[in-house]
């Protein structure tokens, strides 16, 4: 359970959002909506502890994230704007490094994850030789590996083709059905079969 209390963020003297409150329980998806520059990425970075320009509190299972960061970070998988992969390493080496970082990336083998994202046979190709979409797939392969309860995904579908997007949506649905939590931003029409997607619009929040 992730609880956000009175979260406010101000950047360059501009209020992005104020007194934001929400609770996300196991099995729920939250989609953050808003125009470009409305603070979607800022909000996600705050939730991951990657930004300190905020006021308010974040709780993970009743514990303040600020006080027990390691406990929280162990449960959290974040996919950001940057793919987070090294161009001169191969897909397999990149995923192995991610496993070193996150002990919970252990749900299946790397070969299986690469097969799932359609990169079977590309294990030994350095990532700079892959297309933008394929690099994104390498980065997203960790969703298949992940046993983290909480996923925070910032525009995970950029550069993916329609089939890829569909597969990732199914994966998110499967994650949530298994009791996981997911917070994401996307400009795609995003809907999951049989799962109610909660939506938070940052534009409406400021004008309200």
């Amino acid at each position: 359970m992730l609880t956000v209390k009175d979260l406010s963020c101000e950047r360059d003297d501009r209020v992005l959002f104020e007194r934001l409150n929400f609770t996300l329980r196991a099995g729920e998806v939250l989609q953050i909506e808003g125009q470009n520059g409305s603070g979607k990425t800022s909000l996600l970075r705050i939730l991951c502890g990657l930004s300190s320009s905020f006021e308010g509190d974040i709780f993970w299972q009743q514990d303040n994230v600020h006080e027990k960061p390691t406990v929280y970070l162990r449960q959290l998988l974040y996919v950001g704007h940057h793919a987070g992969i090294k161009a001169s390493l191969t897909a397999e080496e990149n995923l192995r490094w991610m496993q070193t970082l996150h002990p919970l990336l252990n749900r299946c083998s790397i070969t299986y994850a690469l097969k799932q994202v359609g990169l079977f046979g590309y294990e030994d190709v350095p990532c700079y030789a892959l297309s933008a979409g394929q690099q994104r797939r390498v980065s997203l392969a960790r969703l298949y590996l992940s046993a983290h309860p909480l996923w925070i995904l910032d525009e995970p579908f950029t550069a993916l083709d329609k089939k890829g997007v569909l597969e990732k949506e199914l994966l998110i649905a499967q994650h949530v059905r298994g009791g996981g939590l997911c917070i994401l931003t996307t400009h795609h029409d995003f809907d999951l079969p049989d799962i109610a997607v909660r939506r938070l619009n940052l534009d409406l929040l400021v004008t309200a």
Partner: peptide, 14 residues
């Protein structure tokens, strides 16, 4: 920093 691998270390328990 540029390719985002550094921020991945920050959001990891390492």
């Amino acid at each position: 920093f540029d390719d985002g691998t550094l921020e991945q270390v920050l959001v990891s328990p390492q």
